[in-house]
């Protein structure tokens, strides 16, 4: 894991969400969106329809995540240069999540890429991510507190 880094606040941030079967993802996504928004970033989230519906229900007035997009459309927009992000945060609790992170690394070469690896067995997954990125790795399924602390540390956010 990379230590806290003093950086300017990104103007644009993209959250890439995995399958919603691990509960902490939802809480962390809203926490990160809240923090980024508080620090002045425009936040955009992408995921599959199930995860987007969970976020829509959790944030009905779109306070935290004003813009949601189906993942495939988001990738299409980035490849076609219709969308960009200075910061990209990818959630991964499966092999598929690592594949999406690798894809983001390739199509957003200039972005700061932070890969949050969680779930029951995050360490083997972390070993698969051999491309340049900052990794936050923590065993987390239902309890988001320990991984939230690590995330806050990496971004320099107060608890």
């Amino acid at each position: 894991m990379t230590g806290p880094v003093e950086r300017s606040v990104p103007a644009t941030a993209l959250l890439v969400l995995g399958c919603p079967e691990v509960p902490v993802q939802q809480a962390l996504a809203l926490h990160i969106a809240y923090q980024l928004k508080k620090h002045g970033a425009a936040v955009h989230a992408a995921g599959n329809p199930a995860v987007l519906n969970l976020l829509k229900v959790s944030d009905p007035a779109k306070h935290y995540l004003p813009e949601l997009q189906v993942l495939e459309n988001c990738i299409k927009d980035i490849v076609e240069k219709k969308r960009d992000a200075e910061l990209c945060i990818v959630f991964a609790h499966s092999d598929a999540g690592i594949s999406y992170a690798a894809t983001m690394r390739h199509i957003l070469p200039d972005a700061r890429l932070v890969l949050i690896i969680f779930g029951k067995e995050p360490e083997p997954l972390a070993a698969l991510a051999d491309f340049p990125c900052e990794k936050i790795v923590e065993k987390a399924v239902h309890n988001p507190m320990a991984i939230k602390k690590k995330i806050n540390g990496v971004f320099g956010w107060a608890a």
């Binding site: 990738i75 980035i78 490849v79 594949s99 690798a102 390739h106 199509i107």
Partner: peptide
Amino acid sequence: VDPGYKLFDEYIIGLP
């Protein structure tokens, strides 16, 4: 190919 390569009008995902 690299991620983002277009195949069957879709963009391929994965580790290059």
